[in-house]
């Protein structure tokens, strides 16, 4: 799906991606010439269809986590089905740990490994909720 700024006859570019919230993703496109913006809002079925493809809207090139779709979309997951091998990594702030715990069981070790790697690559010694936000924004939907 592509968006064209009709007035400028210019292809629009993704400005931001937010969500999913309550099954809806908001993708804002902007015209690079006149800065006009439009937002594409998906309904839950459309959101799920995009999710099922395993591609990322507005992704910026971070490698996907192992079993990324499975671990985030599978219902009724077995607690402790996957455990991360011990790796030297950054310290996780209490708030970051609490946030990690809110993820589905399978997604926790995957996210811990990916965010720890993201932190190490940037020389960050402590994972905070802010770093998790940054990672999520880079990873895209």
């Amino acid at each position: 799906m592509k968006f064209l700024c009709v007035g400028c006859d210019e292809p629009m570019r993704i400005h931001s991606v937010e969500g999913p919230e309550q099954g809806s993703v908001s993708v804002t496109f902007g015209c690079p010439r006149c800065s006009h913006r439009v937002a594409l809002l998906t309904n839950p079925m459309e959101t799920q269809l995009v999710r099922s493809l395993g591609v990322k809207i507005g992704g910026h090139g971070l490698p996907p986590e192992p079993l990324e779709v499975l671990s985030t979309a599978l219902g009724s997951q077995r607690e402790g089905a996957v455990e991360a091998a011990g790796e030297e990594g950054p310290v996780w702030a209490e708030a970051a740990e609490a946030r990690l715990e809110r993820l589905p069981p399978l997604a926790r070790p995957m996210a811990r490994m990916a965010i720890s790697r993201y932190a190490r690559e940037r020389g960050v010694t402590m994972v905070t909720p802010e770093l998790m936000d940054e990672y999520r924004a880079r990873a895209g939907f």
């Binding site: 999913p20 309550q22 099954g23 839950p44 079925m45 959101t47 799920q48 269809l49 999710r51 099922s52 493809l53 395993g54 779709v69 499975l70 985030t72 979309a73 599978l74 219902g75 009724s76 997951q77 077995r78 607690e79 089905a81 996957v82 589905p104 399978l106």
Partner: peptide
């Protein structure tokens, strides 16, 4: 990966309505 017992494969979604549209695609991705 599924919880113990006879747990069926269900994909998390805001609604399961129209799941026939995306379910096969989700399984192919899995």
């Amino acid at each position: 990966f599924l919880a113990e017992g006879p747990t069926p494969l269900i994909w998390e979604a805001t609604t399961q309505q129209d799941s026939f549209v995306w379910r096969e695609s989700m399984e192919a991705t899995a």
